[in-house]
Each structure stands twice: as structure tokens, then as C-alpha cells.
């Protein structure tokens, strides 16, 4: 048992052995899910609250299903429609919820670092379901599991992350995770969508799609975060698709068995051609969604096992 974390706030603070432990368990859950084998005793009697301060359908549903499969009592709170509108601060919201004694808190928030802040104030396990441009750890873990199952390993692979890296928490978590597992990571995108200082992350940076995809094992496309655009990052969607959208011709520069990934929801015809997304020989996009449930089951299972220890430590005033 080598999973010591009491929260899942990001990939940054996870050790590679913790990542492997989590993926191994998720792999088992993925098989059991396919066989319809239930595990309703794992989180039995525990309360899971999903707090989404930002709209989400898929991630929230995935966490909800994961919790229910493991027997947790799951509650969804649409935070946009609640007390935030009445001027309550994040910390007060956290303290209020904490008083209801949940065991697992799944949080998405539009501001980077907000989930870390909240985790300092509550006495339960917190899972980051995405904070601003910072991290989205379960997405990176489900991507890793998908890659491992498709490629048979999660090291010494060449992986291209393409598109709007600057605004993407998915990209940040993936860069960290894939780096920790000793893969070669390339970032491909227009320079206006690559964040500052990115060359110091131990990645290779390309602004040409064909060069960037040359001989890679995995092509990971990112959603063009239109709602995050302040404006003026790219000239137009159609020019973006022409230069950076993944189509058959650009994909032909990757290895013949390269897989195509996308965290969803996709903008067909903007960052990815519909025929590529639907190509069952190349696209693992549906498998990513499936692995999402398994990874979240594993994450909540492991955190629940550490729950007793971390709560005891907290009442004793020990840092964990």
C-alpha cells in the first residue's frame, strides 16, 4: 500500500509509486465495471458531496457514478445557483459544508488554487475536479490509464499534447504526470496558446503540427477553450483548424499505431476532424470516458482508506 495522500489536489504532489498504485486499482475497477461486478461496500456509509462552482456535466456525472458504484451517499450541489450568489465566501461555504460532516468532497472551481484553499479548512478528503488553469488530476490519471491499457506501458512513450495549452488545466496535470512516469512530452500549438516559461518544464515545444506529431505514440488533443478566450489569441476558428486541427493528413506523421485522445467535450471541425474522432482504430476517446469512472472509483477508495488516519492526525494537530 503506497498511497499516502489525504487529498487529491493535483498531480504535482503525487509520487510515481502513488500514481502506479492508483492506476493498478483503477484497472481492476475497470474490469469489474465491464463485468457488472458491484462493490457497494467500499464507501458504504460515507457521504460524498460534489461541489461544482463551474458548469460540468461529464465530470460531475462521472464522479457521481463512481461514488454510487462504491456505495457512497452522493449529493450534488450546483454552487452557481446557491449561496455564492448571496455573497458567501468560499471559506464560509466550506465551513458550512464541513459541519454536515461529509467524508469526500469533490470540488471544481474557476479559480486556480481555490480547491487547495478549501482543503485547508475541512476535515474530509478533498478531490480536485479542476481548479482554474491549475490542475485536473483525475483527468490526467484517466488519460494515463487509457494510454497504459492501449500501449501496454506508461513509460518511454512519445506523447504530443496539442492545442490550447495556456488555458488548460488538463495539459498541466498531464505534463506533470507523464513527466513523472518518464515519457517524452511534446507541446504543439500556436505560440499565443503556449504558456510562458513552458520550455523549463522538460518538454519539447513545436508550433508546427506536422513536426510536432512526427513519430509520436500518442496524440492528445485539447479543447479550444472558447469560453476562456479573452479574445485575440488566434485569428479565426477556420484558420486554427487548418493549421492545428487534427485531420488524417496531420495524423499520418505520427506512428502508424498512434492513438488519438481528447478530454472532451469536442469541438468537431475546430480542433479535431469528426472522422478521426470516430475512427475506432485510432480514437480512444470513449475509452477515456469509461476509464474516468474507474479512476475516480480508485481515487475515492484510496482516499477513504486514509480518511481515519488523516482525521486522527488533524485532531492531534499533526501535519499530514
Amino acid at each position: 500500500m503506497t498511497f499516502r495522500a489525504s487529498h487529491l489536489l493535483g498531480i504535482e504532489h503525487l509520487h510515481s509509486t502513488e500514481i502506479t498504485t492508483l492506476l493498478d486499482l483503477a484497472d481492476q475497477y475497470a474490469e469489474d465495471n465491464r463485468k457488472g461486478r458491484a462493490h457497494r461496500d467500499v464507501l458504504e456509509g460515507l457521504t460524498q458531496i460534489n461541489m461544482f462552482f463551474e458548469n460540468s456535466t461529464r465530470t460531475q456525472a462521472s464522479f457521481e457514478i463512481a461514488g454510487k458504484r462504491l456505495g457512497a451517499d452522493v449529493m450534488n450541489m450546483a454552487m452557481q445557483a446557491s449561496s455564492i450568489k448571496k455573497g458567501e465566501t468560499l471559506i464560509d461555504t466550506a465551513l458550512t459544508l464541513n459541519a454536515m460532516r461529509p467524508d469526500l468532497l469533490v470540488v471544481r472551481h474557476p479559480h486556480s488554487g481555490a480547491v487547495d484553499l478549501l482543503a485547508q479548512k475541512v476535515n474530509c478528503a478533498v478531490l480536485n475536479a479542476g481548479d482554474g488553469r491549475h490542475e485536473h488530476p483525475t483527468q490526467a490519471l484517466l488519460d494515463a490509464l487509457t494510454i497504459r491499457r492501449a500501449k501496454g506501458r506508461l513509460h518511454r512513450l512519445s506523447i504530443a499534447i496539442c492545442g490550447d495549452v495556456a488555458h488548460s488545466r488538463v495539459a498541466r496535470s498531464n505534463i506533470m504526470l507523464l513527466g513523472k512516469m518518464e515519457n517524452r512530452v511534446r507541446l504543439v500549438g500556436p505560440p499565443t496558446l503556449l504558456p510562458a516559461g513552458v520550455e523549463e518544464f522538460g518538454v519539447e515545444v513545436f508550433s508546427d503540427m506536422r513536426e510536432g506529431l512526427k513519430d509520436v505514440d500518442v496524440v492528445m488533443m485539447l479543447r479550444l477553450q472558447k469560453e476562456r478566450m479573452d479574445g485575440g489569441f488566434i485569428p479565426s476558428e477556420r484558420e486554427y483548424f487548418h493549421r492545428y486541427g487534427l485531420d488524417a493528413e496531420k495524423l499520418s506523421h505520427a506512428k502508424p499505431d498512434a492513438i488519438v485522445m481528447h478530454p472532451g467535450p469536442m469541438n468537431r471541425g475546430v480542433e479535431i476532424d469528426g472522422s478521426i474522432a470516430d475512427d475506432i482504430n485510432r480514437s480512444v476517446i470513449q475509452e477515456q470516458v469509461e476509464m474516468g469512472v474507474a479512476v475516480r472509483m480508485a481515487a475515492m477508495d484510496l482516499l477513504a482508506r486514509n480518511l481515519g488516519a488523516s482525521r486522527r492526525a488533524k485532531t492531534l494537530g499533526v501535519m499530514v
Binding site: 504558456p195 510562458a196 516559461g197 513552458v198 518544464f201
Partner: peptide
């Protein structure tokens, strides 16, 4: 300030 740290923390940076 923009740079590696800003990117790591996912915070909007100023050049």
C-alpha cells in the same frame, strides 16, 4: 509575474 511559476500554478501572468 509570467514565467514557469505562474504556469505551474495556473495563474495569469504579467510580463
Amino acid at each position: 509575474t509570467s514565467g514557469k511559476f505562474a504556469t505551474l500554478r495556473g495563474l495569469a501572468g504579467i510580463s
